[in-house]
Structures are given as structure tokens and as C-alpha cells.
């Protein structure tokens, strides 16, 4: 089952990348916010890439998985804060986030993954809005009023711990999710799942004829990607911000960001989302200073430019350059 260790060397650049990022955040005063934002973008890209990059299917409703994940953590804290569970509550929140996003991915996947190409995209485009309107329309979990649970956190953990949780540990978990996403990507790439996904991305009919149960492998990638998104929502949004509003966590805007990151870095590569996340994160941060409100207007034509002119993305191009050199073992 397991491949030889050298097959997993590409995890080294990932580890080094996140290590340096984390180190800078810890060492350079006043930069932690930026660094944690970057980690969020890398994680978002990595999780999104696991499905879009590896299968060639685009899920326009992807942000819904982050949204339900956020609610998973929120529900746990909001309803359990006075049960004396302590930090177990966070664990329960993470589990709930994973469960919610799994359930949603199964429900969406049951319909959408039977469909090919464009029809898949059509099926997913309303998922985030649909879910938002369900929560608002049926007044689930306070409906459009959202849930604010900073007070609950203070009661449950005490002021100090609650602060540390949202100011620091939430971001550390984001780093963890980012790394986990990279590990999962590499594991899949190096095992049968990855080969099945490559085959179906290139030619779904030919893949079926080769004996690949395409629906099964698409579902594996879809669920994995959804769970990672759920965990990301639970940490980067719920735990960090200590509130959740349906209009925020289902905003399509985040799907756009995920697409940009993956394309900038290179769809279907391991290092792409990290490179893309860093490029996007830094330029967004800078653009927010020099040109507030213009980020998407600048990045949307860049997406088109990448698709038409450089479909392989940064890491895709780099990969070709290092082909045949000792570096090729590390850059995928």
C-alpha cells in the first residue's frame, strides 16, 4: 500500500515553506495577522485544489463547506458553553465541522457527481446561496441574526484562554489544516487515488474503460476537500472571529479567491496552492493599502490571462523547468 519514502520527498518544501512562514509570524512583531492570513489562503487553495486541481471539476459553491464548518464550531460553543466541557468543546466543534461538511458534500455529491463537466458546475453554483437561504428562511441557528459567541467563550474558558484561542490558537490550527491538506494531497498523488483522478481529469470515458470507478474517486476527492474546508471554516472563521453571520460565511467571494489562488500557483500541483496563496495574499494585502476595494477587479482579468496564456500556473511552469534536474524529486 505505502510507497517508498522517497516518493514523499515533496513534503519537505511544504514543511520548510510553512515553517519559515510560521517563524516569521512568531519572530517579527506586528506581522502575525498578515502571516495568519497567508496561511489561510494557502490552506484554502490547498483544500480547493484537492478537488478542482485534481479532478478538473470546478465547484462554484465551495464556500458552503467553509460555511457549514464555521457553523459546526459555532453550534458547539454556543450550545455547550455551560456544560463544563472545557477545551473538549473545541474538539467537538472541529468534529461537528467535519461532520457537517461531510454531510453537505454527500448531499451535493449525490446529485452533482453524477453529472459531467458543465452540468456539475451548474449544480454547484447555487449551493452556497441555497444553504444561506435555508438558514435564513427556516430561521435555523438564529437565521439571519447569526450567532455571536465571544461571551460564551469567555464564560467557558475564562478571559485569558478565550483571547489566546481566538488570537493565536485559531491561527495555529489554520497552519495545521494547511499542512494536513498538503499531506492528503501528496498521499493521494502517490497512491491509486491520484492516478485515478489524473485519468478522469484527462478523459473520463477512457478512465472508465480502464476500470476506474470514476464516481467513487471523484467522491473521495470531493469529501476530503470538503472536510478540509469545514475545518478551515471552524478555525479561521468561527474560532478566530467568535461570531458567524450567514451572509458572510456563504459569500461567493471566497470561492473566487480559492480559484485565483489555485490558478496562480498551478492547478493539480502540490506546491501550487502555497505559491498561489502567498502571491495572492501578499498582493491582496498590498492592494488593500494602495487601492482598497480593487482586488477583485485586478485579479479577475489575471485569471483570464492565466487560463489563456499559462494554464499550468507558476509551479506547473517551474516543474517543466526542473525536469531532469535533481530538484524534480521535490517540486510537484
Amino acid at each position: 500500500m505505502m510507497r517508498p519514502v522517497r516518493a514523499y520527498y515533496p513534503i519537505l518544501p511544504v514543511l520548510i515553506g510553512y515553517g519559515i512562514l510560521f517563524g516569521i509570524g512568531q519572530m517579527v512583531p506586528g506581522k502575525w495577522q498578515l502571516i495568519s492570513q497567508l496561511a489561510f489562503f494557502c490552506a484554502l487553495g490547498q483544500a480547493f485544489n484537492l478537488f478542482m486541481g485534481m479532478t478538473g471539476y470546478v465547484d462554484f459553491g465551495y464556500v458552503a463547506f467553509l460555511g457549514v464548518g464555521t457553523y459546526g464550531m459555532a453550534v458547539s460553543i454556543y450550545y455547550l458553553f455551560d456544560k463544563g466541557l472545557g477545551l473538549t468543546m473545541i474538539v467537538i466543534g472541529m468534529i461537528l465541522a467535519a461532520v457537517f461538511s461531510t454531510l453537505l458534500s454527500l448531499a451535493v455529491g449525490a446529485v452533482a457527481l453524477r453529472l459531467r463537466g458543465a452540468y456539475f458546475a451548474i449544480a454547484t453554483i447555487g449551493v452556497n446561496e441555497g444553504f444561506r437561504f435555508l438558514i435564513e428562511g427556516a430561521r435555523i441557528w438564529n437565521g439571519s441574526d447569526g450567532m455571536i459567541f465571544s461571551r460564551h467563550m469567555k464564560t467557558a474558558f475564562g478571559r485569558e484562554t478565550a483571547m489566546a484561542l481566538s488570537m493565536k490558537w485559531a491561527d495555529v490550527i489554520v497552519f495545521g489544516v494547511a499542512f494536513l491538506a498538503a499531506v492528503m494531497t501528496l498521499l493521494y498523488m502517490r497512491n491509486k487515488v491520484g492516478y485515478a483522478l489524473t485519468a478522469l481529469r484527462e478523459d473520463e470515458d477512457a478512465a472508465k474503460v480502464m476500470g476506474i470507478n470514476v464516481t467513487r474517486y471523484k467522491l473521495i476527492a470531493f469529501i476530503t476537500s470538503a472536510i478540509l474546508a469545514g475545518l478551515l471554516g471552524a478555525s479561521a472563521w468561527a474560532l478566530k472571529l467568535t461570531y458567524v453571520y450567514p451572509t458572510d460565511v456563504f459569500a461567493i467571494h471566497y470561492t473566487v479567491e480559492a480559484i485565483i489562488i489555485v490558478l496562480l500557483g498551478g492547478a493539480g500541483t502540490l506546491l501550487g496552492p502555497i505559491v498561489g496563496g502567498l502571491i495572492y495574499g501578499v498582493s491582496k494585502y498590498y492592494l488593500a493599502i494602495v487601492l482598497p476595494g480593487f482586488q477583485l477587479m485586478i485579479f479577475a482579468p489575471i485569471i483570464i490571462m492565466i487560463i489563456v496564456l499559462f494554464p499550468e500556473g507558476t509551479v506547473g511552469i517551474l516543474k517543466k523547468r526542473v525536469f531532469g534536474t535533481p530538484l524534480e524529486k521535490f517540486i510537484i
Binding site: M1, K192, Y195, T198, A199, D203, A206, A207, I212
Partner: peptide, 29 residues
């Protein structure tokens, strides 16, 4: 012919081995 374009020649053929009639018992290596 419809080989999987982005995969190498070796990977293309290996994919046949991994998932075809021999597939269930065969490891990637």
C-alpha cells in the same frame, strides 16, 4: 487514441495495470 495527456507514458500504462482486471491486487509500484 486517447492516452491521458498530462501523465507520462509510464504512468499511462501503469494506470491500466492498477485499475484493470489485474487492478485490485496490484500496488502502484
Amino acid at each position: 487514441p486517447r492516452p491521458f495527456a498530462s501523465a507520462t507514458v509510464r504512468e499511462n500504462i501503469a494506470i491500466g495495470g492498477m485499475f484493470g482486471a489485474a487492478g485490485s491486487e496490484i500496488s502502484v509500484d
